[in-house]
C-alpha cells in the first residue's frame, strides 16, 4: 500500500516512503499464557532490525483494537530491548481466568498467534524472508 504522497507544485515530496502491509507472523514470533484473567503475550522480533518497527507499530492501542471482542480491559505494553521483544498484558481477556473460564483456551495459549494475525505497514524496502 502507498502512503498518500503529498504533492507540491507538480512534484511528489521526496521523503515519502512507500509502504506495504505485512502480517506480524512474518516479523515476529510469540508465546502467550495467563496471569489470572489477563493474558500475557510476548512478541519477539524474528530479526533485531525488525524490533524498532514492532516498537513503533505494535502499540498498546493497536493491540487493544486488534483484540476487539476478546480483550475487555486495558492493554499494557512493556519493552524488552535486550531480547528485541515486547510483552503485552491483555486484561479481562480470558473469561474470568484459568479455573473459572469456560473458554477452550482458558489459559490463553493461542493468544500468541492471534496477535501474529495483525497486519502492519512497513517500509517497502524492508527485506522480509
Amino acid at each position: 500500500m502507498l502512503n498518500p504522497p503529498t504533492i507540491f507544485g507538480g512534484f511528489i515530496e521526496r521523503n515519502f516512503v512507500e509502504m506495504k502491509k505485512v502480517q506480524l507472523l512474518k516479523l515476529a514470533h510469540a508465546r502467550s499464557g495467563d496471569k489470572g484473567d489477563a493474558s500475557n503475550v510476548g512478541l519477539i522480533a524474528r530479526k533485531p532490525e525488525y524490533y524498532p518497527i514492532l516498537k513503533e507499530k505494535v502499540t498498546a492501542d493497536v493491540v487493544k483494537k486488534h483484540f476487539t471482542g476478546i480483550c475487555k480491559g486495558k492493554v499494557e505494553r512493556f519493552e524488552l530491548p535486550n531480547l528485541y521483544a515486547l510483552n503485552f498484558l491483555l486484561h479481562e481477556a480470558l473469561g474470568g481466568g484459568g479455573t473459572v473460564s469456560l473458554r477452550n483456551d482458558a489459559q490463553g495459549k493461542t493468544m500468541s498467534t492471534a496477535l501474529l494475525r495483525l497486519e502492519i505497514d512497513v517500509p517497502d524496502e524492508l527485506v522480509i524472508e
Binding site: 510469540a30 499464557g33 496471569k35 500475557n40 510476548g42 519477539i44 498484558l89
Partner: peptide
C-alpha cells in the same frame, strides 16, 4: 520464548 512466558 520461555523468558516471555507468563510475565507481567
Amino acid at each position: 520464548e520461555q523468558l516471555l512466558y507468563e510475565i507481567g
